[in-house]
Write a protein that binds this DNA or RNA. Structure first.
Length: 255
DNA sequence: ATGGTCGTTGGACGA
């Protein structure tokens, strides 16, 4: 079973790339972020025609999340757990595995109220995990975390130290998630640097120049980590015409 | 070509 996370930066603008990538990579479960569309405008029929069930929650212009599941899997309706008006969290259960897909606020600047909101969002999410699940639960947390966990995950860690996305307060919260029981499944299977999921549009040839950030993640509790076989980033969609600024990250689970 | 690019909007804002 292959699980993927992909920030699309608008699902409507990205349909050609999404559909081609689904056919190509054939993931079993896909967590999407930044769909940027209200539910009445979500391209549900096209997704279904490509072989996936889908659940989604979006709003006008901003945010928006969805979970795709290949037709042979069972799905269940989304439940909201963060109490937010924003559409940043959606969850499902596929077989015995729980999936939580989040679009964590970007944070803008460490001195801004939006950074405080980002930290609060993560603290609420931690409380949700702690109340709704046990570390023994087969649980996947996937999405755009908007945080690069370690110096290997930013192309210029000395430049960006203390910046939003690579800030000690963010790292302290991620450490809490680790202590609770989560493992970064990509990092479990990959040691190298220069492996990124986000490349700023304003940096020309950023992928080729390896100027990116690893801010999209698939984390799992121990039961999931124990059956994970490999994890990788698929840069191909980022290299196409009119790409998202993110590339998908994938994990293969023995199930 | 000299402060960069997208997407959603319908003038900025978010990223």
């Amino acid at each position: 079973m292959i699980i993927a996370s992909f920030n699309l930066n608008s699902i409507r603008a990205r349909m050609p790339i999404l559909l081609e990538w689904l056919q190509d990579a054939r993931p079993d479960l896909v967590c999407l972020q930044e769909t940027k569309v209200v539910d009445s405008g979500f391209p549900e029929l096209e997704i279904q025609a490509s072989g996936y069930e889908v659940i989604f929650r979006g709003e006008k212009a901003y945010n928006g999340v969805a979970i795709l599941s290949r037709h042979q899997n069972r799905n269940r309706p989304p439940q909201w757990e963060d109490g937010s008006e924003e559409t940043r969290l959606i969850r499902a259960r596929i077989g015995g595995i729980h999936i939580v897909n989040t679009y964590v606020p970007q944070g803008v600047h460490p001195l801004s109220g939006k950074f405080r909101y980002k930290l609060d969002f993560l603290q609420s999410l931690y409380a949700f995990f702690d109340s709704a699940f046990s570390p023994d639960t087969p649980l996947v947390w996937a999405g755009d975390f908007n945080i690069a966990p370690s110096p290997e995950d930013v192309y210029a860690p000395e430049v960006f130290a203390g910046s939003v996305g690579f800030h000690p307060d963010e790292h302290a919260i991620l450490d809490r998630f680790r202590k609770w029981g989560f493992t970064d499944l990509f990092r479990l299977h990959n040691r190298g640097r220069d492996e990124y999921t986000f490349f700023d549009y304003t940096i020309r040839n950023a992928v080729k120049r390896k100027m990116g950030w690893r801010i999209d993640h698939i984390w799992g509790t121990r039961p999931v980590a124990d059956i994970s076989k490999r994890a990788w980033i698929d840069l191909r969609p980022r290299l196409l015409k009119r790409p998202s600024d993110h590339a998908p990250v994938l994990v293969e689970i023995k199930i």
